[in-house]
Design a binder for these strands. Structure first.
Length: 652
RNA sequence: GCCCGAGUAGCUCAGUUGGUCAGAGCAGGCGCCUUGUAAGCGUCAGGUCGUCGGUUCGAAUCCGACCUCGGGCUCCA
């Protein structure tokens, strides 16, 4: 009997190993560097521990710490170490779940006596974790029957609940649960895999404490959560922490105050911003651009009120399924009024006001409609989550034959608009029919197929979120990546399978019969407030010239250059640019500094030489040195070219 | 709503164990300076130290409640 096995590697090669050889043995056989970087293996697509013997004939690949999968293993193992540290410091603590998440991990605990963590505890816990890492404890996998598992975790109520919920679809197999035991007497129920020993960890940082409900349910016990992050190397950890710092610098609330764009007066209430002149101007430019694009794309502009009688929301169904998200009612002259949470019912009433012919379709109604939604105080987040939301909202009513074409051109329209704002990386998500839904099988299939075809035509990457659609609509959500790689959901396109029916909408077809129109909801910015916040962070407050509230400042060197400075400013203003003159009450250096801090695209310094030659000294935002002696006419045409360039963003 | 954290001048922050601790810089007003690329000088004004209550001879400082803001609350062993 040959005491060897053969496994195949991702590059297609075969490798012969001793019988009972493990993933660690394989990595070591390939090379010492790989052995050092390895954290787990995948065996026929499933992640395994490095210490498990490999089966003969398996397709194996070694997972290293610098990959997404590898980091997940590192983070998950670090979460275990944290749980062990917490149980050392708080004997009797129960631990619930501790998964790896994007960029880190967390673990939820129930501390004895209802104790809470405070931020000051994080340092102590980190110290205890470092001790455990220094002890280099092995992670030893065990498999048990459910009843054994219940016995082992008898004093861990959350683990017991998890074990009771285990079915054959998860865990180590039917009726089997796996656990990992560390040298320090700590055992945790876990699917694995884990790094071989705690000594493989160490580049981590605990970040914050928070409360979280068991299984996210506010009716269940509240647990104490600690968030942390972990990486494969010190350099990677530091890079991540630096990214967080960069994100903090871009915080739209901070920049919004510094650049005097908007604020949230407590007298008005949480989640209800006011836009200051500069922020208002940016917002107006965004809206103007959007309106111009919609006009070109064949939309009709409508306006609808902020309130409506309860009747409307009974017909629309909002009072049935969305009441918790609505502001409470107002009584007036015997009628009950609600602030609208969505614009769609009102747009439908415009459609329904008279009978339409198929010849008129598609009808595309557009409105910057402000809706009010009652968001719980705890979830408000600057402009990113507000209670007064202005949607760049539109409802398209069309025939079934038009549906696919409308969606395809709509998606192209969305992407063009987003590119104008410097957002060029897209990912879409197609959310399909959930278990509970309205509409027929055929309608859903037709709508989903049309959405899918639109994404194929647009050529953007997408994933299918099975069963994640609203009960009345399949939808496409468009996500963008910003300048520092963060992902934001912005646009949404939904095919509504409910409203046309609720409002008994119809049009007359060529056959002289009544037909039900198809209805598409769509918002491109999503919420203007939110999109504004995303843009502030994306641009780090340095808005491109076409959006900058002040595009140019003219800085006369001395008083006697003022007349020339105003002539330059007037000339640029006459060409439609937004220009300020900053008089020589301060030194040029001080004024340049202010201009840079205000992130103004161009600062023009004008002195003796410029008055003489009809030139300006151009300081472009971000440039190290000024470009002196530029003719005013040249600067003006350059500026004009830059500003119109945004209207024709480069195709992908 | 719940847990953690924070609230001192418009902004950013100092304020040791409760006793000249009510301060600084920026921003603002006024005056001087006339300036060629990231802060010129002087001067003035600004705060019931988030609010209310309590402890104390004495509270920005200690305690309690409340308010506001920030972080987190289904990424499923």
């Amino acid at each position: 009997m040959a005491a060897s096995i053969t496994v195949s590697l991702p590059d297609g090669s075969q490798r012969e190993l001793d019988e009972r050889a493990t993933g660690a043995d394989l990595a070591a056989a390939i090379g010492p560097r790989l052995a050092k970087a390895a954290v787990a293996v995948t065996v026929d697509g499933t992640e395994w521990d490095l210490s498990s013997p490999l089966p003969d004939g398996a397709a194996v690949s070694v997972v290293t710490g610098n990959t997404a999968e590898g980091r997940r293993v590192l983070r998950h193992s670090t979460a275990h170490v944290m749980a062990q540290a917490v149980t050392r410091l708080w004997p009797g603590a129960s631990y619930a779940i501790g998964p790896a998440i994007e960029d880190g991990f967390y673990y939820d605990f129930d501390l004895p006596g209802g104790a809470h963590f405070s931020e000051d505890d994080l340092g102590r816990i980190e110290d205890a974790m470092r001790a455990i890492v220094a002890e280099d404890q092995p992670f030893v996998r065990e498999e048990h029957s459910v009843s054994e598992g219940l016995q082992i975790f008898g004093d861990q109520p959350f683990k017991v609940e998890i074990i009771q919920g285990v079915d054959s679809s998860e865990g180590a197999g039917e009726g089997v649960v796996s656990a990992y035991r560390n040298g320090g007497g700590f055992v945790d129920l876990c699917r694995g895999p884990h790094v071989p020993t705690t000594g493989r960890l160490g580049h981590f940082k605990l970040q914050k404490v928070a409360a979280a409900y068991w299984r996210g349910d506010e009716h269940r016990p509240q647990l104490q959560r600690i968030y942390g992050t972990a990486w494969e190397s010190k350099a990677a950890l530091e890079e991540h922490l630096q990214r967080l710092e960069e994100a903090e610098k871009r915080d739209h609330r901070k920049l919004g105050a510094e650049l005097d764009l908007f604020h949230f007066p407590p007298e008005i209430g949480g989640g209800l911003p006011v836009f200051h002149p500069k922020g208002g101007l940016i917002r107006k430019l965004m809206e103007d651009h959007s309106r111009a694009e919609h006009e070109r794309a064949g939309y009709d502009f409508v306006y609808t009120p902020h309130l409506a009688k309860s009747t409307l929301f009974e017909i629309s169904g909002h009072l049935g399924w969305y009441k918790d998200g609505m502001y409470p009612p107002m009584e007036m002259e015997g009628a009950t009024y609600y602030p609208k949470p969505m614009n769609c019912p009102m747009h439908i009433l415009i459609f329904n006001d008279r009978l339409h012919s198929y010849r008129e379709l598609p009808i595309r109604l557009f409105e910057f409609g402000t809706v009010y939604r009652f968001e719980r105080s705890g979830v408000l987040n600057g402009l990113l989550r507000v209670r007064g939301i202005t949607q760049d909202d539109s409802h398209i009513f069309c025939t079934q034959e038009q549906l696919a074409g409308e969606l395809a051109s709509l998606l192209a329209f969305v992407l063009r608009l987003l590119r104008t704002f410097g957002l060029t990386e897209f990912e879409a998500e197609l959310a399909t029919r959930p278990d509970k839904s309205v509409g027929s099988e055929e309608e859903w299939a037709a709508a989903e197929a049309a959405l899918r075809a639109a994404m194929e035509a647009a050529g953007i990457p997408y994933v299918v979120a099975d069963g994640e659609g609203a009960f009345y609509a399949p939808k496409i959500d468009v996500h963008v990546r910003d300048a520092i790689g963060r992902r934001w959901q912005v646009s949404t396109l939904q095919v509504d399978l409910q409203m046309p029916q609720r409002f008994d909408m119809s049009y007359v077809g060529s056959d002289n019969e009544r037909h039900r129109p198809w209805m598409i909801h769509r918002a491109l910015f999503g919420s203007i407030e939110r999109f504004f916040g995303i843009l502030v962070e994306h641009y780090a407050g340095a808005f491109p010239t076409w959006l900058a509230p002040v595009q140019v400042q003219v800085l006369p060197v001395r008083d006697d250059h003022h007349a020339y400075a105003f002539r330059v400013a007037d000339r640029l203003r006459a060409e439609g640019f937004r220009v300020e003159v900053v008089p020589a009450d301060e030194g040029v250096g001080a004024r340049v500094r202010r201009g840079r801090l205000a992130k103004i695209p161009y600062l023009l310094v004008v002195g003796d030489e410029d008055v003489e030659a009809g030139t300006v000294g151009v300081n472009s935002r971000g440039a190290q040195r000024p470009d002196k002696g530029v003719a005013v006419a040249d600067f003006a045409s350059q500026l004009a070219a830059e500003v119109v360039a945004h209207l024709a963003p480069a195709a992908p």
